[in-house]
Amino acid sequence: MQLAPTSAGLTAAAVSVVSFGTSGAFVKPLLAAGWSPAAAVAARVLVAGLALLPFTLHALRGRWDVLWRGRWRVLGMGLVAVAFTQLAYFAALTRIPVATALLIEYLAPLLLVGATWAATRRRPGATVLAGSALAVGGLVLVIGPGAVQAVDPLGLLFAFAAAIGCAAYFVIAARPADGLAPTALAGTGLLLAAVLLLLAGALDLLPFTAHFGEVTVLGQAAPWWAPLLVVAIIGTAIAYATGIAASNLLGARLASFVGLLEVVSASIFAWLLLGEELTLLQLAGGALILGGIAAVRAERPAAPAPEPVVCLA
């Protein structure tokens, strides 16, 4: 039995959210062992792109014209959605707390609502506005109320740039596929992003340090490549491929709101795998985010509102 597009999209989004949520628990051992954040991200993106390469080639089946027609989506995914977003986020972390940077980056759904409002000159429905308020309130509770504070203005600017990159990810993923499968878009975009990140490291634009000895994973000694493979395959390759598929089926706005559950998923995995505290406040925040997603999904506009257009030319 074939799932309806919305049901299939929500299923893909759920897989993406859970996959992305595993990242923190398996990147943390690398960072604790001496890996710099930029080196860890470059490695995970490169390994993920290589892991998807056979699936990318199978999806293309030698139809390189499909890749050429979708070149702006590939460039946008690799340069903007992955590399630019990661670079902006890490730049923000050098100046502001992690919680504040996360809170600002995950305001991407509100940017999409505002962009659609500006593009169509039509105010979003009451359900979308209510859903936005619920989702942001839930996000604050999950990340922590302490994230809302006055901090370095340049750090805030970098975090806002990461939010724009995050919003661009959903918009690019939701564009008409024109024969370019989600796995092919994810695989080529990740490889392109890896090249850019490694180049940034080679030019000393980012601190690149790595430790190739044993690391501690879930209380046990393990080779450095073990957590890297987990975060690259599950937390990156599968996460991006299913996330792109979800955006293509759900549209950028709804997919971005569902994506907010990544912070809930990450908190749950940190609790299960790392023993970090999971508070009732965070669970309440997760419930508010779910309420916000339900409200956004419930909107039935009179005519389909076009997604905001991102010019990649």
Rank of each mutant, 00 (worst) to 15 (best):
A4T: 15
A8Y: 00
L10I: 11
L10E: 12
S16K: 05
V18P: 05
S19N: 05
S23M: 14
A39Y: 10
A39I: 04
A40D: 07
A40C: 08
L46C: 07
V47L: 15
G49A: 06
R61G: 10
W64T: 01
D65R: 13
V66T: 13
W68V: 15
L79N: 09
V80A: 09
V80R: 02
Q86R: 05
F90H: 11
L93K: 12
T100E: 12
T116P: 06
T120P: 12
T127M: 14
V128P: 03
A130C: 06
G137A: 14
L141T: 04
V142R: 03
D152W: 03
F170D: 12
I172H: 00
A173S: 15
A186T: 01
A194N: 05
P207A: 11
F208M: 13
F212C: 04
E214Y: 09
V215S: 10
Q220K: 07
W225H: 13
G235M: 01
G243K: 04
L254M: 02
L260I: 11
A266V: 00
W271H: 13
L273E: 08
L273I: 11
L278N: 00
L283S: 11
G285E: 09
L290M: 13
A294G: 07
V296C: 09
V296A: 03
A298N: 09
A303T: 15
A303D: 15
V309C: 06
A313P: 15
